[in-house]
Amino acid sequence: MCVDCGYVFTKQSNKSLPVCPMSNLSSDVIPHVRNGWISLSGQGDAPEDPYPDEK
């Protein structure tokens, strides 16, 4: 999920992510200043791939 606008992007691997496609629109009403993603799932989905310890 884009940290600026909430756009949800689905991809098999999150090691390399593109720029949010919503930031390239000429009608961009939500400025994209942080330009990052939040992983909603992935690591931790399988018992053999658990979440790392939270600190």
Rank of each mutant, 00 (worst) to 15 (best):
S23A: 04
P31H: 01
V3E: 00
K15V: 13
Y51E: 09
N14T: 12
L40V: 08
S27M: 06
K15N: 10
S41I: 07
G36D: 15
V19M: 09
G42T: 01
V8Y: 02
I30F: 07
D4N: 01
N24F: 10
Y51F: 06
L25R: 12
M22F: 01
S27I: 11
V8D: 01
V33E: 10
G36A: 15
L40F: 03
P21V: 09
T10L: 04
V19F: 05
I30G: 07
K55A: 05
C20S: 13
A46L: 12
S13E: 05
S16L: 15
M1A: 02
S16F: 15
G6M: 00
P47R: 07
A46W: 11
T10Q: 07
M22L: 07
V33F: 07
V29P: 00
D53N: 01
S39P: 11
C20E: 02
I38N: 11
K55M: 11
P21L: 08
S13Q: 08
K11F: 13
I38H: 10
I38S: 03
V3D: 01
L17D: 04
Y51C: 13
P21C: 02
N14W: 14
D4A: 00
D53R: 05
G44N: 03
D49G: 05
N35L: 02
S16P: 03
S27T: 04
K11N: 11
D53M: 14
Q43M: 00
K15L: 11
L25T: 02
V3W: 06
G6H: 05
S39M: 04
I38L: 12
W37L: 08
V29C: 08
P18W: 02
K11E: 12
Y51A: 15
W37K: 08
S41M: 10
V33L: 10
S23Q: 03
S41F: 14
L17H: 07
N35H: 15
S26K: 15
P50C: 00
S16K: 15
S26L: 14
T10S: 13
K11P: 05
K55E: 13
P31N: 12
G36L: 07
L25Y: 08
I30M: 04
